[in-house]
Design a protein around this nucleic acid. Sequence first.
DNA 1: ATAACTGTATTAGTACATTTAATACAGTGC
DNA 2: GCACTGTATTAAATGTACTAATACAGTTAT
Lengths: 126, 126
Amino acid sequence: MILIDYKDRRPIYEQVIEKLQQMILCGALEPHSPMPSVRNLAMELSLNPNTIQRAYQALEHTGYIYTIKGKGSFVSELSAAADNKRREIEAELQKSIDKAMLSGITSDELRQMAERCITASERKKL
Amino acid sequence: MILIDYKDRRPIYEQVIEKLQQMILCGALEPHSPMPSVRNLAMELSLNPNTIQRAYQALEHTGYIYTIKGKGSFVSELSAAADNKRREIEAELQKSIDKAMLSGITSDELRQMAERCITASERKKL
DNA sequence: ATAACTGTATTAGTACATTTAATACAGTGC
DNA sequence: GCACTGTATTAAATGTACTAATACAGTTAT
């Protein structure tokens, strides 16, 4: 269910973080359900447990999961995390759009471009 | 005129490429005008000439500049480069929007978000 | 209590990309 | 010839990511 893209320039632990965030936010992982153990997920993805540990610690730090020592890690209620993610996504979008404007693309062209991207993304969800 | 952001995680040569692309595409550097020499720009930005050389070679390879050995590098006509850049930007936008949808953000929320970002970016240009 | 799980911490080693540095070579123009 | 262009090469230093191998502590079931 999680696919590591070795062509992606970002570090593996960041890819793991992103995928798990998405699964939590879109409801694929339900609040208070147990996350896979560090060692199991590492086995499943053929990664070192340290790499998964790093991802889990980041997820706990940002409120996506909570941990009970000896028992495991569990999905958090998503209220706070969802708001943060929305802010994060808007910031990324803002960066892309700023770059586009600096390269001489007009607002109207950008609106059309955004609409094209959104409908394309909708189609993929089917 | 070019500012290197050492907090940016991307390599320096990529930042240089991006800034020069923007300056060429928005007309700040006119077609057939001479680019600063590799050594001069390196001095000005306090970087190693090799770093600038790497950026220039990438810019030549993608059609932003052309080079005459012994004379220097010059800004290209921007027809081809502009189209490539537009495609590049739309691809980046598509990625951001796909991620947003995967995180459970709806199309309508995304449209509002995009509009907010575009108007914010317009304001900065004043 | 023992075994088999959980998360956590630490240290070491390897690999890789980026950047700097120091040169050297070749073409252009005064 | 000199001063400027771009180009090429090799070496060294740096930082990050990742793996590996352990060790420790808490939970749970038998």
